[in-house]
Design a protein around this nucleic acid. Structure first.
Length: 472
DNA sequence: ATGTAC
């Protein structure tokens, strides 16, 4: 009667895995009466050459599982044991979850650098507010679901006085020319034409082709969540030469939205493909990447860029409609995306820089960092800080989860803060209340080495998606 | 963030 146990199997080379348990089970069931040495030799043969046991009446099943497991292990891409160093800005206000996620990202074999912005919080795969530079690999979840999500700012030659003279006109036009809510689009003659719809990439693959019609329908819409379109007053404390805008206050239109259903579908499709092609250990599974030298990597890159240009077109449509409606002369327009991947030079090498909720802030690059529906947003100019991989935050960042905000903030508090700041709000739930966000001034202070403030934008008429915006 | 369904 043999007495083979787990230790014996480990000693002849078995690994601590489900195979070990199955092997012991088989031994107990079929080889209870056999000689210890004979069984051990048999198990050793099986381990060395499972393919020779595929017709074995007892060990067939175990042999099959061993071959499967070997293949899984063979395909697994291992993380480096130590995480590369990364700069953290405003660490006092960043939760541990975001740091943990960033450390995992810094262990990927393709990672060359990273940084965490002061509005960082836990996300899916790479944290929101995370910047990751890789070599030849693009991570769909390093870009995020809302590919190409961006800010767009139009500054008009309309004075603060002009605006306050007829605020209701601006409110009416904002309602007339924007559309919010998940799934919502324009239909029939309400659809807008745009050159982005004629892009060749829409014919690239059968999959991409299926996205075109909905993309057309949703062109010029804003979606839900933290997206908004708002009128506000922008104040330049000094003349700005590059923008050619004299010191003073102007009416401005600020919008925040992305690539709608199209980008979300692309993100889902290529994340799934990346996970099939790039098997990472469980803690890094959502950081699956596509090799830029493969068909899949190239396809994602083109689809991501198409989604980015589509997001830009959405802002274009909104700004064009509203500019026409109010009849003001455009003094300047600034736009930046903050969920995207770029080919950039960093630390002397060509890398893929993923910014997932981070504003590009290369030297002289203009960007917009919003505060909240009542707190100011800032027009900024990047300082090109290498440690931050030429990036800055994409907003104030949440300090309360959506659920917590809905539970703890009252309608009265919301009304009071809107009134105190002279803000008219259309739509939005308590989850977007100003108190749910960090203090933007603290966030700006934490990134003063990353960007210079060019102008301050104060929201006045804000539109967001209604609570429960999935209804028609 | 999206808008459908491991």
């Amino acid at each position: 009667m043999n007495s083979i146990n787990g230790k014996d199997l480990l000693a002849i080379g078995y690994q601590q895995s489900k195979i070990l348990g199955l092997a012991l089970e088989v031994i107990g069931k079929y080889y209870q009466e056999a000689e210890y040495e004979t069984v051990l030799a048999l198990m050793k043969d099986l381990l060395e050459k499972p393919e020779a046991f595929l017709d074995h009446e007892i060990l067939e099943d175990l042999a099959t599982k061993m071959i499967e497991e070997a293949k899984e292990i063979d395909e697994t891409i291992f993380l480096n044991n130590t995480a590369k160093e990364f700069a953290v800005y405003g660490s006092a206000h960043i939760a541990e979850g975001a740091l943990t996620q960033m450390r995992t990202a810094m262990r990927l074999p393709v990672t060359v650098g990273g940084a965490l912005m002061p509005d960082a919080h836990q996300g899916y795969g790479l944290p929101i507010g995370g910047v990751l530079a890789t070599k030849n690999g693009v991570i769909p979840y390093g870009v995020g679901v809302d590919i190409g999500c961006r800010m767009a700012l139009s500054i008009f030659d309309i004075t603060e006085e002009d605006f306050f003279h007829t605020p209701d006109t601006y409110k009416r036009e904002l309602i007339a020319h924007t559309r919010f809510g998940a799934g919502h689009g324009y239909h029939g003659k309400d659809r807008t034409e745009h050159a982005v719809l004629d892009r060749n990439e829409f014919n690239m693959t059968p999959f991409i082709k299926t996205l075109k019609d909905k993309a057309w329908s949703q062109l010029g819409t804003s979606g839900g969540g933290n997206h908004f379109v708002e009128w506000g007053i922008i104040e330049f404390a000094a003349d700005d030469q590059p923008l050619n805008i004299p010191k003073g206050k102007y009416l401005a239109l600020l919008s925040h939205s992305g690539s709608r259903g199209m980008g979300a579908t692309i993100a889902g499709y290529y994340t799934r493909l990346a996970k099939e092609l790039c098997k990472l250990p469980k803690e890094a599974a959502n950081l699956a990447y596509l090799d830029m030298n493969t068909q899949a990597g190239q396809e994602y890159w083109l689809a991501m860029n198409l989604a980015g240009d589509y997001a830009s077109a959405c802002h274009d449509v909104i700004h064009n409609k509203l500019a026409k409606a109010i009849g003001g002369k455009l003094l300047a327009k600034v736009e930046n995306h903050h969920n995207f991947a770029w080919k950039e030079s960093w630390n002397g090498e060509e890398v893929i820089v993923h910014r997932k909720g981070a504003t590009p802030a290369g030297k002289g690059v203009m960007g917009i960092i919003p505060g909240s529906m009542t707190a100011p947003g800032f027009l900024v100019r990047g300082k090109g800080e290498e440690m931050a991989i030429n990036s800055a935050s994409h907003g104030a960042g949440r300090q309360m989860s959506r659920t917590s905000a809905i539970q703890h903030i009252t309608q009265q508090e919301m009304q009071a803060i809107l009134q105190a700041n002279g803000v008219t709000l259309i739509g939005a739930g308590l989850d977007e209340a100003p108190m749910a966000y960090k203090d933007i001034n603290v966030v700006m202070e934490a990134q003063k080495d990353l960007v210079d403030i060019v102008a301050k934008f104060s929201p006045k008429v804000v539109r967001m998606a209604d609570d429960g915006s999935t209804e028609d």
